[in-house]
Every structure is written in C-alpha cells, then in structure tokens.
Simulated assay, not measured.
Amino acid sequence: MVKIPPAYKNKEEYVHAIFSSIAHRYDLLNTVLSFNRDKYWRRFAVGQTGLKAGGYGLDVCCGTGMLAIELARAAGPEGRVVGVDFCRNMLERARENIGRTPYGDRIQLVEGNAVNLPFADNTFDCATIGFALRNVPDIRRTIQEMARVVRPGGRVVSLELSKPGAPLFKQLYYLYFDHLVPLLGRLGIGFDGPYSYLPNSLKDFPHQREIRDLFAAVGLAGARYYELTGGIVTVHVGTVV
C-alpha cells in the first residue's frame, strides 16, 4: 500500500507534490523507462478513441500534454482538444511541448480536477486518461466524470500501467520496476521519492479485469481492454450510451 508521508493530508496532495517536482524531467524519464515504447502506447490509445477529423477530444490528467498532442493529430486542423490537469507545473510543461508542435491553436489547457471535471455533460467526442488513473483519489468517480462529459456514442479510454500475467516475464518486470526504476528515477531528477512511489502505486492499483468491470459498472458499453508489451500497460475502452 502507498504510504502517504505525514507532511501531506491525503493522496491527492501527495500526488500533486510528486508531479510538481518531476514535471521538468517527466517526458525524458517516460521515454527512457519505457524503452521508448510510450509513443506507441499513446498512438494505440488514441486509435481506440474513434476520434475523427474535426472531432472534439478531452485528455484528463493531461500532464505534459503528450497524449493531448496525439489527440490533436487525430482530430486534424478542424478539430479541437482540451487537456485538463490539477498540477500547474505539468501544465506549464504541456504548454512548452504543445508550442513546439503545429497544434497550438487547437489544444486548450485547463486547470481542473479529474473527480470534478469543469465541463458540461455531453461535451466531447471522447475522453482519455494516460498513466494517471492509478493516481486519482477515486477511480470510479473519475471514470464516471469522463463518461458524463462525453456524448452518447463517444468513447472513454484509459492508458495505464498494469500487471503482466506470464510468470517469468512478470518476475523480470517487477525486478526492473521495483529496483531499477527508482534508481534511474533518482539519477534523472536528483532525489529520492517520486520514482519509488511509482511501483507502489501499481501494486495498489486494481487488475485490468477489475478496471474493465468498473467501466461496465458505471454504464459504459462494450467495456474491454488491450494488454500491450506483454501486459505492462493496458488500454481500457468503453462507449457512452
């Protein structure tokens, strides 16, 4: 179980502090720690949204904006994307990343909370969340909020770390995740803490079957999941009815 240091009142405050501290190295470390597979994972997730040219997409807990950029690419010149995050440091990094792309005029960044999205019902054609569902204070509430703001027929998509099933691969993966990831993270940002939280957050996170069941429980139709790269990440998909 993730232990919240006494300096923080709750998980939400702790997670905010973590991501505020690592925003400047987040993208680089994602690429290094995933062996550059993170780009493929994001492309696959956006492919599951069904977002078409001219569409309107939402990325929840958008972080440094990389998934929002991928959504904007799918939405095309006439489309629009909103990225929402509760961490200003991450949003500042997102603005820098988006500014280096041709999509600056079609991505809007908003400060807001995943469990209380600041948007009206039935606003977007799809909603995504990438590598953040395990960090929110209420997983079910977050999925419900994403479903609320998506129009009927649109999709809710989650890209998240998950638990491999193959015994040998699973052992090797957890060896890497439990020991090398915290070490590489410490080298990358210069201090302990944030990348030790990462493996602990995954251990607490429900299995991909349970997340699929949560998608179905909140009323999303056709809830399913795709395990990628041996099951170290999973993309969940459900359709708003």
Rank of each mutant, 00 (worst) to 15 (best):
Y176T: 11
R224H: 04
R212L: 00
L172Y: 06
G57K: 01
I211S: 04
P194H: 12
Y103S: 02
V84I: 14
E160T: 14
V150Y: 09
Y56W: 10
D213W: 06
S21H: 09
I143D: 08
V46G: 01
V149H: 12
L159S: 14
L67I: 11
E13T: 04
R37P: 00
V2E: 11
Y56V: 06
L28Q: 12
K39F: 12
L71H: 01
R106S: 00
F205E: 03
G238V: 06
Q171I: 14
A217Q: 13
R42V: 09
Y195H: 03
P194C: 13
R88D: 10
R95Y: 01
N97M: 00
P152V: 14
A17V: 10
L133G: 08
G57E: 04
L51Q: 03
S34H: 02
V2M: 08
E111H: 09
W41C: 00
G185Y: 01
G79V: 08
A94Q: 01
D27F: 11
L161A: 09
P167D: 14
Y197K: 03
P206N: 08
I107N: 01
E12N: 07
G50L: 06
G231D: 04
A132W: 10
D121V: 06
H207E: 15
R148M: 08
P167E: 09
K3C: 10
K163V: 05
G50Q: 11
N10D: 15
Y176Q: 12
G231I: 00
C126A: 15
Q48W: 02
L28H: 12
L184I: 08
Y103H: 00
Q208W: 13
S21M: 14
F215S: 06
V241D: 13
Y176K: 10
T142N: 03
I4V: 15
P6D: 15
E78A: 11
F131C: 10
A94M: 05
D204K: 04
L91F: 06
T49S: 11
A120E: 12
Y226P: 00
T123P: 02
T234R: 10
R106M: 03
L198Y: 03
V218Y: 01
D85K: 10
E160L: 11
P152S: 09
M1Y: 08
G230P: 08
A94R: 05
G188A: 15
